[in-house]
Nucleic acid binder design. Structure first.
Lengths: 337, 337
DNA sequence: CTGTTAGCGCTTTCAG
DNA sequence: CTGAAAGCGCTAACAG
């Protein structure tokens, strides 16, 4: 039969309540007692039953990860964040639940409410672009559900972010350092924070170099390979085509490289290409793609940990800034002579 | 305060147990009573508390999806299956939990046991390659945990599959129909059922056409873009290079197209390329990729439904066969003249 | 077909 | 610092 906390208590010669205190890491237990109880748990291979804990303690030990992948279902980004959040949850013996939610749905809030009342998550992790959807944040606060954000637009919540603008600036600086001046930018999906930051970094770098941004060299994309191809075709059809292209993510950068091939342009001989994210494909391309490493998995993990810490009341929960790293590879080189 | 089943019962003028019967769709409730109870639930906006149901009923209302993505973390395949399983779970008011598990781990079974005793899933959905890992299946049976498989190697379990061999044969038949005879095949990851089936279909088609399979035209890959590039380079370096390449999945097919570009080969003018899966990238490539549509999301959904049905005891649970569909697009054409 | 009783395993409250 | 009693909301087992 199942080992209950009562059995542990008996074995440790304490009351069930004391055993419960130890299980929950509560204060007011002598070190000696705590050790005895932990030993008994170990010896009996005790596994707390989460449904009983939930029922009695009025909490679920569940963290839900909320995401909206409708704009880019291909993305491996979410899967990586998911892995990270999962790792954090495992470390705290929480379980994680994935919940897709469509911002565009009329009954978004209704669905959110249903999710909350059906599953009672103790907290939620928000992935972009949900991180920046005000009605969602508002409702979570109203419902008193703790949340942590991965890469939010503004810093007014707990979670984790990267200085994407600085990273974008750094990669454009790299291109400038190679002598490029006609540097194009392929924008990400309209309305996403990532698109804005990366554009801002591009602009900042160009301005710092004293270069005017040529509007024809900034073209719309949508974070997908296909949109990268389409954007690059426009760029390569220009009379005065760019010698370098900074795409707002790697999928699009791969598309740019594809289009370069179509146009008979060598990378990096005729045109340098760089991206953002460092997805697995980036290092598989030929030449391998110069990009910014965005540690999505780690970011998911940290956001999860922040959330769980704040649930435990151990810390208030912070916004952690994660450093970026340029990955300089073969797809960028000096300007064509 | 929270609406409990007792409140519903009172409103419907029945005992709590009868309300419970209605909630659980049990027999032995008159149609009239059932309606009254349902109406009361609706009126009060009753939400069952799953922790209480779990504790009293000794079940969790949780389905875990088990996967091992270590061989190919890039894959969008799992994310699609996940979406499908999630949809099935939502429909039955179950929650879904993602659980990565590494087949290569020495303590695989220990981790599985921990997962079972910590989370008590009522059932699990297995994604390849876990579907074919005998020790896992054995342990699940020993622990009496119901499971459904997506694309198992053998059919001896409930779940869903596609006739991948027939699909592979069909796509190779398509190439044969275009006049190709020097048809190469890029193998998938060694040891995966999908690799075996697709190879078998390729062989079957060649044999049926009376063509001997040239060993030099069958090269190892690993389901990744990079492995497709590497494999294709070998093929294109042959004196007698193939006029068509059937890659065991789309990621590799994209790699083959990439390598064709490198070698100055036009697709499909100089070489036809086709893949398998119909991932989003397939239709974004230029030319778009001829492939086999594998409805992963739908397969996940059906596997989830099969599992949930069998948990309800409604049906024994079946192995459902899903039809495939050839997607004939621009990457395949007649043999070079 | 319906209701009563007695828990599920844990935590809360409150008293020491 | 520790313990006794009283549930959390639901369902199993039985009785009618």
């Amino acid at each position: 039969m199942r080992v209950r906390l009562e059995d542990v208590a008996r074995a440790a010669k304490v009351s069930p309540k004391t055993a419960s205190r130890v299980l929950n890491d509560e204060a007011n237990v002598s070190e000696d007692t705590r050790k005895r109880v932990l030993a008994a748990m170990e010896a009996l291979d005790y596994r707390p039953l989460s449904s009983a804990r939930s029922l009695a303690g009025n909490r679920s030990f569940v963290v839900a990860m909320l995401y909206d992948n409708n704009d880019n279902p291909t993305s491996t980004y979410l899967a990586e964040i998911q892995d990270g959040v999962l790792e954090a949850c495992d470390a705290h013996r929480y379980s994680m639940m994935m919940r897709p939610l469509r911002m565009r749905d009329d009954d978004f809030i209704r669905r959110l409410d249903a999710l909350i009342s059906d599953h009672h998550p103790d907290g939620v992790v928000l992935a972009p672009p949900l991180t920046d959807y005000a009605p969602l944040l508002k409702r979570l606060r109203e419902c008193n559900v703790a949340y942590a954000c991965v890469s939010p637009e503004s810093g007014g919540c707990i979670g984790v972010r990267m200085d994407e603008q600085a990273a974008a600036r750094a990669i454009v600086d790299h291109l400038l350092g190679l002598g490029h001046t006609r540097i194009a930018h392929v924008l990400g999906m309209d309305g996403h924070g990532a698109s804005r930051w990366r554009l801002a970094g591009y602009r900042e770098a160009m301005a710092a170099a004293g270069l005017a941004v040529n509007k024809a060299l900034v073209v719309q994309g949508a974070f997908t390979f296909g949109s990268g191809v389409a954007a690059a075709r426009k760029l390569f059809a220009l009379k005065n085509r760019p010698t370098a292209v900074f795409a707002a993510n790697d999928d699009m950068a791969a598309g740019v490289m594809w289009a370069a091939n179509e146009h008979g342009l060598k990378v990096p001989g005729d045109v340098s290409v760089c991206g953002f994210d460092d997805i697995p494909l980036a290092s598989q391309l030929l030449p391998a793609l110069t990009t910014v490493r965005q540690p999505s998995r780690e970011m998911g993990r940290v956001a999860g940990l922040q959330l769980l810490e704040s649930l435990r009341g151990r810390s208030a929960g912070l916004m952690v800034q994660i450093p970026f790293a340029l990955q300089l590879r073969g797809s960028t080189g000096s300007i064509p002579s």
